[in-house]
Structure formats: C-alpha cells, structure tokens
C-alpha cells in the first residue's frame, strides 16, 4: 500500500509536552559517550522528542505507512538554542514533501520543537524512506 498522496503539506497536532530532566540528558550523554556539564544537552538529544512526533505519523492508520518498511534516510537539526534540563518541549510535525522513487515513498518531515512558552528551540528535519512491497 502506498502512502496517502494528500499527506504532503499536512501538519500534525503538537506532541504532549516532554519534560527534559537532568537525569534523562545524563543517560543520553552516557549512552553516546558525550560530555554533559549540567548545561547544554548533546546536539542530537532532540531526536528523543522528534521521534515521538515521527512515531505518531508512522502509526497513523490513515497515512498508510508500514513501520517495518521505514528507513531513516536523512536527518538535520537547526538550533535556536541548546536543549537544557527543565525544558518542556513539544514537537509539531509537518510533512514538507512526498515523492516516489523506484517504488519507495520519500517522506520529508520537519518537526518544530518549542518550549512551554511557545518559543522555538530546535527544528529536526527527517527524511523517511518507505520501501514499497516489492522493493
């Protein structure tokens, strides 16, 4: 089953706020061998929040994505500021682009991460490659 062509341009509701704790940042830093001095979280930490927005997209039955056919093709972050402990982050995902290449759907997503007061913290761009049945 192909992905719903009307997906392009669609924005999903914001994810439930994620409370960033010092312990979670420390766990992530240890897992990646990164330094955490109590201030900035490691640069790729926002994936933890963006991942929940991407999961909501992939699990939406109307979208037509089979989870086991999805490969992470590309990832990019732009930061207004680093994530810090105490942040309450919410991710709002928009499908920026949708194209078909060789039986695969290439889904370009953009998740805007904002703090509790709505200010921008980081944008996570992810390209998801959804392989077709025969690919």
């Amino acid at each position: 089953m192909a992905v719903d062509p009307s997906l392009a341009g669609r924005t999903f509701p914001p994810t439930e706020p994620y409370e960033v704790s010092r312990e979670k940042i420390l766990e992530f830093a240890r897992a990646t061998g990164s330094v955490y001095d109590g201030e900035a979280a490691p640069a790729t930490f926002p994936i933890v929040v963006a991942f929940s927005a991407m999961t909501a997209l992939m699990e939406d039955p109307d979208v037509g994505i089979s989870l086991h056919r999805v490969v992470h093709g590309e990832q990019r972050f732009t930061y207004t500021r680093p994530v810090v402990a105490g942040d309450r982050l919410s991710a709002t995902l928009t499908v920026d682009s949708l194209r078909q290449i060789g039986g695969a759907d290439i889904i370009g997503t953009r998740s805007e991460l904002t703090d509790a007061d709505g200010t921008h913290v980081c944008t996570a761009f992810a390209t998801l490659v959804h392989r077709g049945e025969d690919a």
Binding site: V35, D37, R76, F77, P82
Partner: peptide, 13 residues
C-alpha cells in the same frame, strides 16, 4: 572545546 556550540548538524544515512 565544549558543549552547546552546534548551530546546525545534518547528514544522510
């Protein structure tokens, strides 16, 4: 020489 200095980061897998 420290954390929190990354303004942009991207790659393809």
């Amino acid at each position: 020489g420290g954390t929190g200095r990354v303004r942009e980061l991207g790659c393809k897998f």
